[in-house]
């Protein structure tokens, strides 16, 4: 009940956030704009629209994750509302999990709205709703949730600006781990080899959560690719949240 109470309160807080509403409206506008972009694409309208739409979902999801995810904990500390809550009979892990789940619910609403916009465009263009996009959309949602978990972790240990920079770094590195691995393989004796290896091992491989291209192309995916991506994402989220809780458990709220 306590986790649910915090989650529900966080949902109320974030769903009314003006930044979030603005980003969401802009994302929906861009997805609708893909109708125009599709017109210029010489016979690949449907693919371009889907590709554009899914990329917009991913990018704006990232923006929401960074802006709202970092504010989530920082605002509690800056406004000292956290003093009221954590002096009550609630465990710190319950608070962290409640905050996270509340934002996850808000993000679910956002992703659902963006997906609805994409399907509406698809309906206009194709005359049907392409449900084969669902696995790709779910994994985009999971990727956003993973980025939020990192935002939460960084915002408990450093300043909001640095937390935003670190979170964006995770996103960028997470999408380039394949290159890092290739670099390590091709140049095993370079000076920063050990550092790259650590980055490769620690950072999530966000490409595991990227089915956008396959979904747009209707390409055959390796069996269970979506399920693997899902489990990978959930496992990583659990790991990052556990780390956040361990740090937050002993944090002094000065």
């Amino acid at each position: 009940m306590r986790i649910l109470a915090v989650a529900s309160n966080t949902f109320k807080e974030t769903i009314r956030n003006r930044i979030l509403v603005n980003i969401l409206l802009f994302a929906v506008f861009l997805i609708l704009l893909s109708l125009v972009v599709g017109e210029w694409s010489m016979g690949h309208q449907v693919k371009v629209i889907k590709d554009f739409g899914l990329s917009a979902m991913s990018l704006f999801g990232l923006l929401i994750a960074v802006f709202i995810g970092i504010r989530l904990m920082v605002q509690e500390m800056e406004q000292r509302t956290i003093y009221l809550i954590l002096s009550k009979p609630i465990r710190r892990w319950e608070f962290v999990l409640g905050k996270y789940l509340g934002l996850a619910a808000t993000l679910a609403v956002n992703v659902a709205l963006m997906a609805a916009a994409l399907w509406a465009v698809g309906l206009i263009q194709e005359g049907r709703v392409d449900l084969s996009l669902i696995p790709a959309i779910l994994l985009i949602y999971l990727e956003i949730l993973l980025i939020v978990a990192f935002a939460l972790l960084f915002s408990t240990i450093t300043s909001p600006t640095l937390a935003a920079v670190f979170t964006l770094c995770v996103y960028v590195i997470g999408h380039t781990t394949a290159f890092i691995r290739e670099f390590i393989t091709v140049h095993p004796d370079k000076g920063a080899h050990w550092l790259l290896r650590i980055i490769y091992l620690v950072m999530p491989n966000l490409e595991n959560l990227n089915l956008k291209a396959a979904a747009v192309e209707h390409a055959a995916l390796p069996p269970h690719a979506a399920a693997f991506g899902g489990l990978y994402g959930l496992g990583y989220i659990a790991f990052v949240l556990t780390l956040t809780v361990l740090i937050f458990e002993n944090k002094d709220l000065k």
């Binding site: 306590r2 309160n9 109320k12 807080e13 000292r80 509302t81 003093y83 009221l84 009979p89």
Partner: peptide, 26 residues
Amino acid sequence: FVPEQPNLYGYLTAAEMLDFIAKIFG
């Protein structure tokens, strides 16, 4: 516990605020 100059959630009404705290107390 009442902290010094308590700050409460501005987006809630006073009754919603108390309801939230009451839920934490179960």
